[in-house]
């Protein structure tokens, strides 16, 4: 059972809802080690995305994801705007022309997204950023394909790895992003970007699992 255009649209809509619901939570996480806007930024960006969706609903998945990427770049701002924007742009390029995504497509999409974020933000795992959620998720996706998991299992493993990576940001000292300014005071707080990253993957997994 691959990811269809319809699944993609449902995912993005649910993601917008999830980010809206988690707006204050993400902002609160950002208040502790950042500048108290991550939830506001993501909510603003995905609200704009949902407004763009009707116009691209009949296009291929790559085009939809690229639209998400350009919309995020144009509306989110901050660090997360260019980073998630690039991630979705690259994901869109990796899925260009596709009307459905199988396991291998999903892995290619996630690979592209991670590379995009790393190319823009220059962060490596362990620096207390969204990379700490996405990198293990991508690894888990590769392993799931090797283990011949089906798509739903793959997404669930992805999601679990992202969640674990997100939680592991708590003891880390930030060396990238705004939290790095806090030095050792950044220790003991969960990274907001890693948290939104997990939310993105969880919503995808939940959308496909139902």
């Amino acid at each position: 059972m691959p990811i269809t255009i319809d699944d993609t649209l449902r995912w993005l809509q649910r993601l917008a809802d999830a980010l809206h619901e988690n707006r204050d939570y993400l902002t609160q996480l950002d208040a502790a080690i950042g500048d108290a806007d991550h939830g506001i930024n993501m909510d603003r960006g995905f609200k704009a995305v949902t407004e763009k969706l009707p116009a691209v609903a009949s296009m291929d998945i790559g085009s939809i994801l690229k639209t998400v990427g350009t919309t995020l770049v144009s509306t989110v701002g901050g660090a997360s705007g260019p980073l998630y924007g690039t991630a979705f742009l690259r994901a869109g390029m990796a899925t260009a022309g596709k009307h459905e995504l199988d396991e291998a497509d999903v892995v290619a999409m996630l690979d592209a997204a991670l590379e995009g974020i790393k190319a823009r933000g220059k962060a490596q795992p362990g620096e207390k950023t969204m990379v700490d959620a996405l990198a293990p998720a991508v690894e888990a996706a590769h392993e799931a394909v090797q283990a011949k998991c089906d798509l739903i299992q793959l997404l669930q493993r992805c999601c679990a790895a992202a969640e674990e990576g997100m939680k592991k940001t708590i003891p880390l000292q930030a060396t990238k992003g705004r939290a790095s300014y806090l030095g050792e005071r950044s220790v003991g707080h969960q990274d907001p970007g890693a948290t939104s990253c997990w939310l993105i993957l969880k919503t995808l997994s939940d959308t496909m699992g139902q």
Partner: peptide, 11 residues
């Protein structure tokens, strides 16, 4: 000018 405390966008 971006949103409050948020970098503006490339546009």
């Amino acid at each position: 000018p971006g949103a409050i405390f948020t970098s503006p966008v490339p546009d």
